[in-house]
Design a protein around this nucleic acid. Sequence first.
DNA 1: GCCAACGTTGGC
DNA 2: GCCAACGTTGGC
Length: 168
Amino acid sequence: MKHWLMKSEPSVYSVDDLARDKKTLWTGVRNYQARNYMTQDMTVGDGVFFYHSNAEPPCIAGLMRVSAVAAPDPSQFDPKSEGYEPRASKTAPTWACVEVEFVAKFARALALDELRALPALEKMELLRKGSRLSIQPVDDDAFTVICKEAGFVPQRLSSRKARSTVVP
DNA sequence: GCCAACGTTGGC
DNA sequence: GCCAACGTTGGC
């Protein structure tokens, strides 16, 4: 299972909005690298950090999970949408979106400067100077460190079989 | 609001 | 295929 980080400006769509909606289509991505991560690498069940960009402070605000693989982003077909893509057609779409579902809002959001203070995250894409990529992979170690720092315990042994093997 | 970094566009 | 101009992102 892979892990990811996806950015959204909370003034547009926040972790609280997702907590309310339970699920949403992650529409509006207009960057090829970010799109390719969605169409080529994301699978159902992948964990995704919800990052608040252009926020005060910028922070990782919660966790979500991929609930459906990439499909054409409907906003590219809507002339009234900011993300309208005149070159796209239903048979040859340009942009894609995954569906994500809410997992958790971190009781303590992890601000960018706190993340920078963690040596284990040195190589994280998010923390690279000039990094703008709105969808990026997060390696297992970084995922674990961030969850721990946020006081969040991932429910990795969620199947009945797995749970039954856990010593009480 | 500023501006550095980056991605895209389009002329050549 | 190069690269200057332009537009966007996103921290500060």
